[in-house]
Structures are given as structure tokens and as C-alpha cells.
Amino acid sequence: MTRAGIIRIGVLVGAVAALEAACRAGYVNRQAVIAPSEMVRGAWRVLGTQEARGHIAETLTTVSLAFLLSVIAGFAIGVALHRLPRFRRAVDPLLASYYAVPTFVFYPVFIVLFGLNRWPLVAIGFLFAVVAVAINTLDGLDRLPPVFMRTARVLRLSPRQTLLRITVPAIAPWLFTAVKFAVAYSFIGVIAGEFVQAGSGIGFAIAFAYNSFDNLTMYGLMLLLFAFVCTLNMSLWTWEQKLYARRGGR
């Protein structure tokens, strides 16, 4: 492991230990923050209940749906915009300021549209993620060397072959970034929606535990969620590094 990696682990362990010590010594209000060891106990207890497992499964299904839809649609939008340069120039300012708009304000509109079920949440996660995928796809296509396309024409590849054999592998690094954004954003969108208004899911369960002063469950669920999202990101990151190593750098 690199020196930076060792120091990083040291910093994190130190921070957790400091919080633990501060909580045990009573410097921190127990009503506000509980000790890390208590959080782990809460997470363990939460995992043991049928109800919480249901919430977790519910959220993961919703996020996966939003993620899949946003990656497919975002890629298609990116390719389409790349083919229509004039339209793209006109849409560019809108794409660039898209994330300044708090998308979740449309959540109530979606509830009226789809009913109070999982679909408004899928829609919010999708809206949050799809533009990041489109922007990164466009970014990659812009940097595609023209000689690749010429080679495809020389070899008389069909449009489908060109897409699968040339375009997608060539812009893989950008697509990877797009996928990472899509994971993070669909999680943020879905959980935010669950907090605002939903009858199930992790966001709902955390809000419910907070409202009933159940700190153990609340921190347990938070710990589980953060641990899951961080593990997912780390594995994507490691996979990406391996991919780069095989390509011989970017």
C-alpha cells in the first residue's frame, strides 16, 4: 500500500477513535450524536429485523431502476446531441446550468402524475442522473479521434458495429465517469424523495426513526447506507484503475 493510503487509514481511524472517546467522555450530547460503537450495534440490530431489510430492498430496487434508465437514456441523448451540432449548441447553456435547478421540487408533480408508489422516486432519481450521463457521453464523443471513425468506414462496419466495436470502447473512460455519477445521483435523488414523502425505503425509515427519537436505529441505518455507497464507489474506482492499467494509461 502507498504511503498516502496508510496515512489515510490512520486519519480515518483517528477521527473515529476521537469521536468514540468524545462520546464516552460525555463531551458530546448523547441525544445528538451517539458513539461509533453504538452506531455499529444499531446497524447490526437493524439488519436483523425483517422490516428494515424490506426498506433496504425497496430502496435498492428503486435506485437500480433509476440508474439503469438514466444510463441508457443519457447515453442515447448524448449520441443524438453529438449528431446534431446546431441543436446541441442551442441546448448547451441549458445542460450546463441543469444542476443548478433543484430537480426534486418536481417530486410532488410526479406523485400526482404516477400516484404515491415507487415510480415518482424512480423519476426523480432518473432526472437527477440522466443529464450527468449525457454530458459525460458528449465529452467522450468530442474527444474521439476522427481517425477511428474513418477506420470504421474503411472497414465498412455497420452503424451498430461501429457503435459497439469502436465508439463505446474508445469512450469507455468517460462512460465510466458517467456510470459513477449515475450511481451517486440516483441514490441522492431516490433517498431525497423518500425523505420528503414516501411510505417505505431507507430515507423513510431514517426520517421515521428520527421522528420517534430512535437514535440507535437512525444512526444504524445511516451507517449502513454510507458504508454501502462508499463500498460501491470504491469498487467502481478500483475497477476503473484496472481498466486504465490495461489500456496503458488514458
Binding site: 445528538a32 450524536v33 459513477k180 450511481v183 451517486a184 441514490f187 441522492i188 433517498i191 431525497a192 425523505f195 430515507g203 431514517i206 426520517a207 428520527y210 437512525m218 445511516m222 447506507l225 454510507f226 455507497v229 462508499c230 464507489n233
Partner: peptide
């Protein structure tokens, strides 16, 4: 950056 920070609102 990637964690859903809305979860932290109770804290």
C-alpha cells in the same frame, strides 16, 4: 461528495 447528504439532516 458521493454520499446522499440529505441523510444527515437529522444530525
Amino acid at each position: 461528495y458521493a454520499i446522499p447528504k440529505i441523510t444527515l439532516y437529522p444530525i
